Amino acid sequence: MQRTIRSKEFIAERAWGALDIANIGGASVRLHWTDQPYIWHINDGEEVFAVMDGTVVMHYREAGVEKHATLHSGDIFHAGIGCEHVAHPQGAARILVIEKAGSV
């Protein structure tokens, strides 16, 4: 099966709504649309977060110190195991997330 997904055209009915694209070896690949921040969380595995459209400020904690990285279209954030983080879109954004299926 083949399909083409135009990420810039995807809009969900609610913030962090997702389009399931694939499950590869137990990892889910999902396209999210949001215009609202997520919640502080720690995934139970690694997470790859690729901004497809828009700008997202990713807040994360290292040794208890809060830091942030501003991500633009084409930028990727890798949250390793145990990385506490939260995404704050600056307006509407579309984000491709690859993580362990069923993760928070």
Score class of each variant (00 low, 15 high):
E62P: 01
M52G: 03
Y60P: 01
H68R: 15
K67C: 11
I98T: 12
Q90M: 13
M58Y: 03
W40T: 06
Q36Y: 01
E99T: 06
G102L: 09
N23K: 08
H85M: 11
L71N: 00
V51N: 08
A79M: 10
W33C: 02
N23V: 15
G82N: 13
I24L: 14
A79R: 02
E9I: 04
H88A: 06
T4E: 09
H59G: 10
I76R: 00
H59F: 09
A69V: 15
H88Y: 14
A15H: 11
V51K: 05
V48D: 01
A50W: 00
I24K: 04
E99C: 10
S28H: 05
K67D: 03
I81P: 04
R3K: 12
V29A: 07
I39P: 01
G26L: 09
K100G: 03
R30C: 09
A69C: 11
S7E: 11
H85V: 06
H41E: 14
Y60N: 03
R30D: 08
A18L: 13
M1S: 12
Y60V: 03
E62L: 14
Y38T: 14
V51Q: 07
G91P: 04
C83N: 06
C83T: 15
S7M: 09
E13T: 14
E84F: 01
I81N: 12
P37L: 08
V97S: 03
H78M: 13
T70K: 15
R14W: 03
I95T: 02
R3G: 14
I39G: 06
V86S: 02
V86N: 07
V29Q: 03
V104F: 02
I24C: 08
E9Y: 05
Y38F: 10
Y38C: 12
Q36T: 09
M52Y: 04
G45N: 13
R6W: 04
V86M: 14
G91D: 07
I5F: 12
W40Q: 03
V86H: 00
G26F: 09
W40M: 06
I81W: 04
A87V: 01
V29N: 01
A50G: 06
A79D: 00
E13I: 10
N43R: 04
H78C: 09
V48I: 15
C83M: 13
G74R: 03
S103W: 01
A12K: 04
F77D: 00
G26D: 08
I24F: 08
G64F: 06
K100N: 10
K67L: 14
R61W: 02
I21P: 02
H32L: 15
S73V: 09
K67M: 11
G54W: 05
R30E: 09
G80A: 13
A18Q: 10
N43K: 04
V86W: 02
V51D: 03
